[in-house]
Design a binder for these strands. Structure first.
Lengths: 233, 233
DNA sequence: GTTTGAGGTGTACGGCGTACACCTGCGGAT
DNA sequence: ATCCGCAGGTGTACGCCGTACACCTCAAAC
């Protein structure tokens, strides 16, 4: 008796891709090689992902899924710290992940979910919306291992045609349902412009903010004679 | 009269590659396209660079060459700040540069020169070798726009066969001539192992160091009621 | 039992990096 | 003046890549 035919699906494709990239490296991961791994002809994959870009997007989603949920009942610093370290662990399990993440500009729901949850950790900790905004920018580099313009919508706006106001409002409402924290921050940073969706951020300001946080921190450690030997500050 | 034939050379190839990448994007930059731009057959390029990897390495060198020298006669924080901002400007002029830099693991002389000079800014500012070490790790992400394990030689050591002691000593001597600051830091961090060249770094420690500098900084700003409106701390 | 459409197939195209054999013409030695 | 070596440019070819497009298959819905 022939066993029942097992169909591929998007999830199996993505998981196989992640596993294969772990094994042979991201450069060697081709549609053809992945298809072979799945015992299928290359073009079969295109029934489950539109193209290789979308495959990579999906792989990122898998990695994000491996990041632990925030711990509860702890000071915000602890919550954030643990979360970042968990993200780091996930990225370390898949050495290729950082460089792939780097090249993704599409903000998939998984990414937005994560960002929203992350934003919430600061807001729940009592930080102001304003500070949270800049902090999110600054910590982006640590969270992922690199600097990404998290709230940067300039690329998206370039692609999208100007939107009629009612559509924009609808989008906002839907965004508010799914990503309330992001919305709160985005709204607040939109103060000085007419549009509701924000005007993008002042990258230079955000960069200097993060830089100065670090430099000031270094200076304090220097003044205190910090040493890694006995790293009790 | 036919004008004198103009030969290609490595430098012209690299500059053309940078200009072309600026124009058409890094993804569209192929050996074939670059050759076409230079009015030459693709394989001609291989007389000047070994392969595409080396081309990319060379392009990075060009970008590094665009970073300003450190300002003189200023507090170390100012010196570092200006230098980082200059690096950022260079990377921004070539939007593809960050992702290329990200994928380079080879430490070319240009990269080492820059790192050495950078290390010197902290040491000259009076920071301890120990603190400088960790600070270099931490600021790596800001300097380039992403986190790179700057002093990480694990990849290099994996590739290189175990070296006879005298060769190692020779390398150290040569390194000391060219990169005295790097050497000082590397030596100091090698305390707890027999080898002279260091044992690589504790990535986890470095990561947490940088993370905690930022989190502590955020906390201070929060306590002080910092706001981006009037950003006088 | 027929229809239908999701899922898998086969072929083909244009692009990529680059190995390898070859040609060309300039600089220096004779 | 001639020759030679060789750095620099050429031409062809190979095996990869992503993916468009037409086609087939077969389980499930009717």
């Amino acid at each position: 008796m022939p066993e029942k035919r097992v169909y591929l699906n998007r999830d199996r494709v993505l998981r196989a891709a992640v596993a294969l990239a772990d094994e042979i490296g991201i450069d060697a991961l081709s549609m053809r090689r992945l298809a072979q791994e799945l015992g299928v002809v290359p073009m079969a994959l295109y029934k489950h992902v539109q193209n290789k870009e979308e495959l990579l997007d999906g792989m990122v989603e898998v990695i994000i899924g491996e990041i632990d949920a925030p711990v509860v009942d702890a000071e915000w610093k602890t919550v954030v710290r643990e979360r970042v370290l968990s993200a780091r662990r996930a990225l370390q399990r898949h050495p290729w992940a950082r460089s792939v993440l780097e090249t993704r500009t599409r903000q998939t729901p998984a990414v937005l979910d994560y960002m929203d949850s992350f934003t919430g950790m600061f807001l729940d900790g009592g930080l102001s919306v304003d500070l949270t905004h800049h902090v999110m920018h600054a910590i982006g580099g640590r969270m992922w291992g690199f600097t990404q313009e998290l709230f940067d919508d300039s690329a998206a706006r370039k692609a999208a045609p100007p939107m009629p106001p009612e559509a924009q409002a609808a989008m906002m409402r839907q965004m508010g349902d799914s990503y309330p924290n992001i919305l709160a921050v985005a709204m607040a940073s939109a103060h000085d412009e007419g549009t509701a969706v924000g005007h993008g951020c002042d990258d230079q300001f955000e960069f200097e903010f993060a830089l100065d946080v670090m430099l000031d921190g270094f200076e304090r450690l220097h003044e205190r004679g910090w040493s890694s030997r006995r790293a009790a500050v």
